[in-house]
Amino acid sequence: MPVRIWRKPLDAEKIKVKKAEVHILKNQCKGCGFCIEFCPKQVLETSDELNIKGSHPPKIVDETKCALCGFCTAVCPDFAIFTIEKDCKEGC
């Protein structure tokens, strides 16, 4: 159950929630599935797509859910996934 906020925080307008970009280097992936399994926000899921090595890289379900925790970057044994903060200067 998500926590319900019934009062608006005083600094809600000042603080902007960071938006994430998830990048998957598909041809580096060996399809172990750690990023899918251990993502706390279920941003990724298995896909039917094949890469050059014949394994299934993950696919992004909903990038807006990503909280930029960076666990997928850290747990990937093949350096195939990373997240960066979205550049929102021109609006996004």
Binding site: L25, G31, D78, F79, F82
Partner: peptide, 26 residues
């Protein structure tokens, strides 16, 4: 886009030889 830790790796040798899901990569 480049991986943030790419400069620590010898790119010509990647991807590495270890099996899928091996802890050595971690």
């Amino acid at each position: 886009m480049k991986h943030p830790y790419e400069r620590f790796l010898r790119k010509e040798r990647m991807p590495h030889i270890w099996c899928e899901g091996c802890g050595n990569g971690i």
